[in-house]
Amino acid sequence: MDVFMKGLSKAKEGVVAAAEKTKQGVAEAAGKTKEGVLYVGSKTKEGVVHGVATVAEKTKEQVTNVGGAVVTGVTAVAQKTVEGAGSIAAATGFVKKDQLGKNEEGAPQEGILEDMPVDPDNEAYEMPSEEGYQDYEPEA
């Protein structure tokens, strides 16, 4: 019985440690998101679009440190934060509304985080759909 109880105690310690790591990862992701939003706020009209992409990228980098179902929630929060940063930029006159959601080359930025393969159960990952990809044929 002692062996059984000791095993359960060790398992509990492992769960607590994993929860603490997840909590730490979420806190880091939130900190990076805040950094990115402050970065966007300090940019001029020309830099705002690039700044919004930076927020998304920093958040995406930190999301990889967070495991399990938390990833889905962090990704949703990050996307809403990026959308909010863009709205703030438009409201303050840093950028025109028609410039939001495009990178410096004018290509749409939507789907940055949505296409990231995420499995809350950590069982399997699927690649994003290939609808947006084109076949590449090298020139002879």
Rank of each mutant, 00 (worst) to 15 (best):
M1C: 00
M1L: 00
M1D: 00
M1Y: 01
V3C: 03
K6H: 02
G7Y: 06
S9E: 14
A11Q: 00
A11G: 02
E13A: 14
G14M: 15
G14I: 14
G14V: 13
V16E: 04
V16H: 04
E20H: 11
E20I: 11
E20P: 00
Q24E: 05
Q24Y: 15
G25P: 00
G25L: 13
V26I: 15
G31H: 04
G31I: 05
G31V: 03
K32L: 15
E35K: 05
Y39T: 05
G41F: 10
S42C: 08
E46K: 05
E46T: 07
G47F: 14
V48Y: 12
V48E: 00
H50K: 07
V52W: 15
V52C: 13
V52A: 11
V55F: 10
E57A: 07
K58N: 04
K58T: 06
T59S: 04
T59G: 06
K60M: 15
K60V: 08
E61L: 07
Q62F: 08
V63M: 14
V63Y: 13
V63Q: 01
N65L: 07
V66T: 03
G68E: 12
A69C: 08
G73E: 04
T75F: 14
V77M: 12
V77Y: 07
V77D: 01
A78R: 06
K80G: 04
K80A: 12
G84V: 14
G84K: 11
G86L: 14
S87K: 03
I88V: 05
I88P: 02
I88N: 02
A89M: 11
A91G: 06
T92P: 04
G93T: 05
V95T: 08
K97P: 11
K97E: 07
D98S: 11
Q99I: 13
L100P: 13
G101T: 07
K102S: 01
P108G: 03
P108T: 12
P108R: 10
Q109S: 12
Q109E: 09
E110P: 11
E110R: 08
I112W: 09
I112Q: 06
L113N: 01
E114T: 04
E114S: 12
M116K: 06
M116G: 03
N122L: 08
N122K: 15
E123A: 04
E123R: 04
A124F: 15
Y125N: 11
E126F: 03
P128S: 05
S129V: 08
E130S: 04
Y133H: 11
D135E: 13
P138C: 10
A140F: 13
